[in-house]
Amino acid sequence: MKYLYSFLAMCMKEWIEWKRYWFNSIIGLIIYMIVFISIFTGAQYIGQNNFALGESMEGFLIGYALWFMAMGAMSDTANSIVDEARKGTLEQLYMTEIPFTWLLISKNIISTLIYIVIFFLIINVQMLFTGISLNIDAISIFITLFIGLFSLYGIGLVLAGIGLVFKKVQSLLGATQFILIGIMIIPSVEAPLVKLLPFTYTRHMIMSIMREGKGLLGFSSVDYFYLVGISTLYLALGLAAYRIAEAQSLKKGMLGQY
């Protein structure tokens, strides 16, 4: 029960913070839509229908929404830990009976749900604006994204660990935006090494659901092996890297400094 109450407390905090900063969240979404409309209109104007973020306009539409969501998910973990350290509240979170890792996972689960809702919201607005129709199989998309986003939280944990020890991570977070763009425009996941990149396989499966109309039952066990395996691998790597940074931080007394 203790773990459930701590999870609910994290939910409550996320909701309160969202309520307090709703203006910032809405502005973020509006800017996203303005950029999207500009790119889309520009693409139509120059008559290209096969560029940048995907093999087609549908691909671009999904890829761009996924990129926006992935960026948020990845930077969310790093930013929230660094922000807690800066405010001094990270030390308090470390002093609870409930392990900090659980609090972190709780936060990630809540963030995942929020980001998936945002994904659905923006993809629908995009479809409305562009007139492009996509297969919105809510359950398939939700489950795939829910599992897939944890690979990005793993990367976020690595960045958070770096932030704990070296403090400034903003430039690193900026650089990861471009890495994510790279991941979003990879046309195929056939090459073995590409499969192992974080979120690549998730993106591939989401594309299959939304463009080809595949459902959860349409994927093979190999697909699920890659989806779950890669997320688990990156989350484990992220947790391990964070643990190393945390040990350093506890040794040097840097949890409350930023």
């Binding site: 029960m1 109450y5 701590s6 407390a9 994290m10 409550m12 979170l93 009976e97 409930i98 609090l103």
Partner: peptide
């Protein structure tokens, strides 16, 4: 409420 909650 939050600090009570994260302490279970």
């Amino acid at each position: 409420n939050f600090f009570a909650g994260i302490n279970g």
